[in-house]
Nucleic acid binder design. Structure first.
Lengths: 239, 239
DNA sequence: GCAAAAGTGTTATTCTTACACCCATGA
DNA sequence: TCATGGGTGTAAGAATAACACTTTTGC
């Protein structure tokens, strides 16, 4: 018998990262998951996503999923990997093309859980559907690796931020302290950020300078996707 | 009407790199292409590949394509990217999952062109079918980038090689000279290669030490795919 | 012996890291 | 004025790069 099931189907899923303050006020790396309502893996948590529409671009599909799940626009979006093990989905063959995204902490803080969507600490997940635990592990590894040589950290923040806020992003994700002085010099020398001239007031102490992400590509910039760079959604383009 | 064409189909293609000596005896970076025999893009050259079989793993499909095209086994194989622009294939929606591979120069030297398979200089390609020019550009970028921080260069060589041969791989691909002394120290310190104790004789000058790739992961090793490392085919596993 | 590649030694320079110290503000 | 994070200075150590020099072979 010849049916639709004779060829593998395509799904697009997205690992959505954000930083949200916990009870103590310290930011934590979190991702939203959706509860599956049908077999296979009914009732387990899974990455948001769905089948690829016939005329939809892969990145658009990831972006739409992200919007439908969180109500937010991604500040950074990049393809992660295509997972196609024939045994990864019982019953039918599904190839999942997975994206990973960063969303700003400010907006994400307004998002609350619904019955079928919940935010989990990225390093403390339950058993997920399919091979989604492996996928999140890989996305986490890629986020940490890329944070060290690329300029994506601002994707967790708003349009303007202090260097202390930016440094905190690095410290939370890389899970180690970073020297404030050296961090400041490295960032300013790289041209990744530019001072806005304004200062953040209302702090208990000396008011810090506000910075903005510098979208201009600098010499130490082309570490991204090379010839595919235009396929990456940046904060500037999404605005 | 509901037909198979209502859902996107999946193809797996592979960019196969090798080093082959040109007329002057200097190695050149080359890739094999196949001539299309049907529309769309009939008669144009394209990357080897084909539809994903229902029960076949993605990497297996790439490996099979490589074997059918070149008669060789890959010494290195890694997923490159999934290309899914709805307009990239006129008439039907095709998502291509592309791999890139390295094959040893010794074996590849025995491969000769057939009517529908030819080897091209990687930096001097004709107009290719679909978006395959962009794909090769990206694969080239990834090869060059990865060569600088990873340990894949031995994939172009046989089981044993001299440091001069390994250095020549870097020089040809990165297109710049490398200091022999510093290269030796860097390689030996990284633990990437180990001396076999044997020497290559028959050279016009001082016989060089033969080295072998060290498959043992060292401290400076985990720059690869992180949690997905086991999904990369290495020379050791393919042997 | 000579040419040429193999292999070793040495130094200047740059990058990284650690940490001391001053500055500006709210309470 | 004091506590605290913002911001600057500086020096030790490591990694990189440039290049001189010695060794070993075939011819």
């Amino acid at each position: 018998m010849t049916t639709l099931d004779d060829r593998p189907s395509i799904a697009v899923s997205t690992v959505i990262f954000t930083l949200q303050p916990n009870e103590s006020g310290e930011p934590e790396l979190r991702i939203p998951l959706v509860r599956r309502i049908r077999e296979p893996f009914a009732d387990l948590w899974a990455l948001p996503g769905g089948p690829l529409a016939q005329t939809e671009d892969l990145a658009d599909s990831a972006s739409r999923t992200l919007r439908e799940t969180t109500g937010l626009e991604p500040r950074y979006l990049e393809q992660l990997y295509a997972f196609g093990d024939p045994a990864r989905s019982p019953g039918e063959r599904v190839v999942s093309i997975v994206y990973w995204a960063l969303v700003g902490g400010d907006e994400a803080g307004q998002v609350f859980d619904s019955e079928n969507v919940a935010w989990f600490r990225a390093d403390d997940l339950p058993e997920l559907a399919f091979d989604h635990n492996l996928i999140v592990d890989y996305a986490l590894w890629r986020l940490r690796t890329k944070l060290e040589y690329s300029r994506i950290a601002h994707g967790f923040l708003g349009d303007t931020f202090t260097l202390a806020q930016l440094r905190e992003v690095y410290e939370v994700i890389l899970q180690r302290p970073i020297d404030p002085g050296n961090f400041r010099r490295t960032m300013e020398a790289s041209g990744t950020v530019v001072a806005t001239g304004e200062r953040l007031t209302g702090t208990p102490h000396r008011p810090p300078q506000l910075y903005r992400y510098n979208a201009e590509p600098t010499a130490s910039n082309e570490f991204d996707l090379g010839p595919l760079s235009h396929r990456v959604l940046t904060a500037k383009e999404s605005a």
